[in-house]
Amino acid sequence: MNTQSAPLLSARNLVKTFPVRRGGYAWRPKVEFRAVDDVSFDIEAGRTLGLVGESGSGKSTIGRAITLLVPPSSGSIRFEGEEITGLNATKQRSVRRRFQMVFQDPYASLNPRMRVGEFVAEPLVIHGLMPQRNERNEFVAELFTKVGLDPRFVDRFPHQFSGGQQQRICIARAISLKPSLIIADEPISALDVSIQAQVVNLLQDLQTELDLTYLFISHDLNMVRHICHGVAVLYRGRIVEIAPTTELFQNPLHPYTQVLLSAISVPDPIVERARQHILMDPTMDYGEPDSRLVEVSSGHWLAAARCETDGVTT
């Protein structure tokens, strides 16, 4: 297992807090809400790490912190061996070329006033690549073909496309800079089920073709199982369990992971009806407030209370 060289991306003790006032009343003192709380993980080059958890568990915030769209409050992010937090504006710009993001809502991700070809070419213009218009147009046409769109559509506006096509446009834009990492923030959850598989297959094809690494944020566990090599389970801003996909699905150890996996529906009514569900108890706190990840078997890490782990380590 431990044959890995330096991982492509490694996050250590990532924290993002937001100041909030309880109830939104201006006279109440601000308290810090920890959306992401001490999160650490690695992604190796060419792999896909799934990030799963319920709404509000901090999935998207992690994605945005890694792409530096929201600056992390503390912690370190190393990308290709280089620390990317706290960079100045120029350095940040150049490092951004190497990772791109695909968002959940493809329509909101497209500028309604911009022709899609122009939109796909924009990152190239920003970074001053391909200053020649002809060359750029050719490349955009190539990208369109690569994501399965007709290159003749470059002069159209976003609303003239279906949701799946719009997401393909977003993907084309994301790969235009030839990044090594793509953070996909629920890229398929806004799409029709019949389209989801197509887009996921496209993502997989591009992964092998362009040597991409994915951070795949999702709450669709079936999809995660299908495309991810490893899965991290997030609960209230903390990672409670992280393991290779097969290991996690066969041998979930954390109670929250068990609840989550039990919620996957089986597309067979007889099996589904007979199945014993582990129901989530919303009043229960599944996380240990003061826990850390312990490796229980090769590559399988589990959050455990510090007192227990102290016993293990000493």
Binding site: L69, R93, Q100, M101, F103, S109, N111, E122, I126, C170
Partner: peptide
């Protein structure tokens, strides 16, 4: 909106985001 975030993520400066 996500397209503004995506422009930011692509490295666009404030002026480009504002005007384009």
């Amino acid at each position: 909106r996500e397209f503004v975030l995506s422009a930011k993520g692509a490295g666009a400066g404030h002026l480009r985001i504002l005007f384009r």
